[in-house]
Design a protein around this nucleic acid. Structure first.
Length: 818
RNA sequence: GGCUGAGUGGCGAAAUUGGCAUACGCAGCAGACUCAAAAUCUGCCGUCCUUCACUGGGCGUGUGGGUUCAACUCCCACCUCAGCCACCA
């Protein structure tokens, strides 16, 4: 009879049909059971999935299946993002409605995820473009409005001329829109909605300590840098000829006696007031250039306003300049330039012939000669030429100067963050409408809760030009004021889609709740998320917004946890032909193509086997073929030995039996440990391959009882990695019930143990021989055996043994001289 | 410029606590099976020297130093690559 061959199409089709349209596993809301919440980041593809998109799901799904088998109550949900901008672009290009486009994409992605056999609980599917999700976005918005966390202000904002919309700072990449890499961003002043994330800056920074260990160090560092806390001093400089003061921020107030000018950002309000018409022109030019934020070294430029300001510490007068390298968005938008102790100031001042005045002496040196200085001295040291502060250390001088500023009312100690408030307004159609009404008499009026959700009108022309398309829909735009009942105008801004992704994982716990965003009791059980898996590209935006949103929800009283995610895992990219997979590079392997050719199981096994999950992975077809061969090898072994398997057989165990059992239990141990600690599934799968190699070598000598024992465990072992073929083999073994509902096989230390300890014999640290001894042999015994070893003796002959290092059960090392 | 990683065969990689460097896979080579091929199975596979062969030995984890009986692993300095941030006062 011909041997059964592995046919992934037959097997996967069969089980896919059985699993389709029914949740494989439903978590119970049973708070007495240990829970595990595993979540992959929302997909953001605008078209079909490729193998690069599937990697974090392969990792997450293996983990979810393992945790089930370990008896955990597992929440493993899946949902879909609204893809704001891609949806509108598609609408413009293909004349399709964004809603239609989005739903079609979701259907396509869902079909592909189903084909991969991922084990989501589809009953908890959440799409962020659904009316119910809008309702709760808006509900949170109103809560934030009440508390002043959501607010509106006129602001200079980044504006992408291509999208005709505002961008968050985080969406500006190298001076260009994150979606249009060649379109420079310009600055515009507009009324915008913001979330006061800066109110949480301190907490966001402090709570990073809670995440240490569970989050990658790299991500935490990126977040710290992004929040960018710095301690310093704000100091007022009185203008000599006006009643106005200029407030500057500095971290080095100890250098203030060396300040030789003040420099205003071109966006500073005084920059416009203090300069003449010609200066106005220069200011505008600088603003445009700053908006472009050209990467690399932009030449420092500036000009004097002709005005002077008084240094409150020294009483000296310094000129006021405008400089293109000073940013409005950081500190106060004005700086004091201390060329002797700040490299940027040094470059600026020497370029324009402004004096350099050293006031800090290095601990072990002399005060620099300004004429000879090639660069600024930026370290702390001893303060000199600074009146009453001369002779103090930098630290001490800062403390005293802060105290004086406060006492005399011209400044104070200040903490500045790089993090800015989150601008959430988008002049775009496809997003959650901001639920407020503008009334000529009552001002900004929130939409009453019982009128939520405010839904998008469906008949709308999307052109991608000018203002929001919503402005052209009278039945949306024109409303009555909820307070006075007069004619009013609905807000047409919609919310950033990062709002959606900031809390979708909470909604999963209670996806069908229609009276609240979720039941707080369910959140208390499931949160924080035990394991979140996604790309490192979300280290800043999504992962800071989510943390902020969690703290905000805690403050409005709907949840109790401070942090959303206990452990974060960032998987590497999938590379092909030396580049990240992308349509433009033409190196995409689509999910459908891969499944047709190799099967979902092979794709999953290869993605887990080819590299450790945190590292980048090279996709090669020949490599995938190797994984296919491995699965085929396993399948063949199982099917051709299944008739031989008999657990009740009492034949005595052969040497091969013992060898195979030992290898099996070593493999079980290895795979279990990989799941429990470092997730190096590449070594887990390598171990299973080694075990299969051992099975092939010993096949003919195995007894029926051992065959039965081995086949069952081999199948279970493969369950998390290759679920389709595992299921098929389980059925071949005459067993019923899905593999992932079986118990994870425990390993037996006794069976896993080697017959004896293999001891390495070294001379001067070089391996010369190996011997096998019973475990726990004494040091004397070991040395004796080592000295008698044939291969060791020549190295000891005629030499003097200075020392013998013995590590029991491991090694003997002779240190010889002569 | 700052921060964070990484650098091991022809290639992807392993070595988890300082103790056998290169597990597992890919590619390659050889053999078995076959009329033949594919598939499959088995063996070889860092480098140099030695040997007909068996074998034995030197070198070898980016570079240079150090600690140690022993270093891919720890310390110091440097080089290269990647990612993120970047006139942040």
């Amino acid at each position: 009879m011909p041997e059964k061959q592995y046919d992934h199409n037959l097997i996967e089709m069969k089980w896919h049909r059985r699993w389709e349209n029914q949740p494989l596993y439903k978590p119970e809301h049973d708070t007495t059971k240990p829970k595990y919440y595993v979540l992959e980041m929302l997909p953001y593809p605008s078209g079909t999935l490729h193998v690069g998109h599937l990697r974090n799901y392969a990792i997450g799904d293996a983990l979810a299946r393992y945790k089930w088998m370990q008896g955990f109550n597992v929440l493993h949900p899946m949902g879909w993002d609204a893809f704001g901008l891609p949806a509108e672009n598609a609408a413009i290009k293909n004349n399709r409605h964004p809603r239609e486009w989005t739903l079609a994409n979701i259907a396509a992605m869902k079909r592909q995820h189903n084909r991969m056999g991922f084990s989501y609980d589809w009953d908890l599917e959440v799409s962020t473009c659904e009316p119910e999700y809008y309702r709760w976005n808006q509900w949170f918005f109103l809560k934030m409005l009440e508390r002043g966390i959501a607010y509106r202000k006129k602001a200079l904002v980044n504006w992408c001329p291509e999208c005709a919309t505002v961008l968050a700072n985080e969406q500006v990449v190298d001076g260009c829109c994150w979606r249009h890499e060649t379109t420079p961003v310009v600055q515009r002043e507009l009324d915008q909605w913001f979330f006061r994330i800066t109110q949480y800056a301190d907490e966001l920074l402090a709570d990073i300590a809670q995440l240490e260990g569970g989050w990658p160090e790299r991500v935490l560092t990126m977040q710290k840098n992004w929040i960018g806390r710095s301690e310093g001093t704000e100091v007022d400089f009185q203008l000599a000829d006006f009643e106005t003061k200029i407030r500057v921020f500095t971290t080095r107030v100890d250098t203030i006696f060396g300040a030789t000018c003040l420099i205003l950002a071109p966006g500073h309000s005084l920059a416009k007031e203090l300069v003449d018409a010609d200066g106005q022109k220069q200011v505008r030019a600088m603003l445009d250039a700053q908006a472009r934020k050209d990467p690399g070294d932009v030449l420092k430029e500036g000009f004097a306003t002709g005005h002077y300001a008084v240094n409150p510490y020294s009483g000296g007068k310094v000129p006021v300049w405008v400089g293109n390298f000073v940013l409005m968005g950081y500190g106060t938008g004005a700086i004091m330039a201390v060329p002797a102790h700040d490299q940027r100031d040094f470059e600026f001042c020497t370029q324009y012939g402004l004096p350099v005045v050293p006031v800090i002496r290095p601990m072990d040196g002399a005060l620099a000669d300004p004429a000879a200085m090639k660069e600024a001295f930026g370290d702390d040291g001893i303060v000199e030429n600074s009146g009453e502060y001369s002779g103090l250390g930098s630290e001490e001088a800062r403390t005293r100067m802060n105290a004086r500023a406060k006492a005399e009312g011209f400044g104070e100690k200040a903490i500045t963050f790089r993090l800015k408030d989150w601008g959430v307004s988008r002049q775009r159609y496809w997003g959650t409408p901001i639920p407020v009404v503008h009334c000529p008499t009552c001002g900004v009026v929130p939409v009453p809760e019982d009128q939520l959700p405010v839904l998008l009108p469906l008949n709308v022309a999307i052109t991608g030009k000018g203002k929001s398309p919503l402005e052209n829909v009278p039945e949306f735009l024109n409303v009555k004021c909820p307070v006075c009942g007069e004619d009013a105008r609905r807000e047409t801004d919609t919310m950033d889609t990062f709002v959606d992704s900031s809390w979708y994982f909470y909604r999963y716990c209670d996806a069908h709740n229609s009276s609240a965003p979720f039941d707080s009791k369910k959140i208390a059980y499931w949160f924080p998320i035990d394991q979140y898996i996604g790309g490192v590209e979300h280290a800043i935006l999504h992962l800071i917004y989510s943390r902020f949103w969690t703290k905000m929800m805690r403050d409005i009283g709907v949840i109790q946890n401070d942090e959303p995610v206990k452990r974060l895992f960032t998987q590497g990219m999938v590379i092909k032909d030396g580049a990240k997979m992308s349509k433009s590079k033409g190196n995409v392997v689509s999910a459908d193509e891969m499944i047709d050719k190799f099967g979902a199981d092979t794709g999953r096994v290869f993605e887990l086997f080819a590299a450790p999950p945190e590292r980048d992975l090279d996709w090669t077809d020949t490599g995938a073929e190797g994984s296919y061969r491995f699965l085929a090898r396993v399948y063949r072994f199982v099917t051709r030995n299944v008739d031989r398997a008999d657990l009740s057989s009492t034949l005595p165990r052969t040497e091969a039996d013992k060898r195979v059992l030992r290898k099996l239990h070593q493999t079980l141990k290895k795979v279990t440990e990989d799941f429990e600690s470092r997730w190096h599934f590449n070594t887990s799968i390598a171990a299973i391959m080694e075990f299969v190699n051992e099975l092939y070598a010993s096949e003919s000598e195995l007894t029926p009882a051992v065959i039965a024992h081995v086949l069952e465990r081999l199948t279970l072992l493969l369950g998390p990695f290759a679920p389709y073929v595992a299921e098929e083999m389980w059925e071949e073994l005459g067993r019923t019930g899905p593999v992932f509902k079986q118990k994870w096989p425990a390993y037996d230390d006794e069976l896993a143990r080697e017959a004896g300890a293999e001891v390495v014999l070294q001379v001067n640290g070089k391996m010369r021989s190996k011997i096998v001894v019973p475990f726990g042999a004494s040091k004397e015994d070991l040395e004796q055996r080592a000295r008698e070893d044939d291969k060791i003796q020549p190295f000891l002959a005629g030499k003097q043994v200075a020392k013998v290092i013995i590590v029991p059960d491991k090694l003997v090392n002779f240190v010889v001289k002569g």
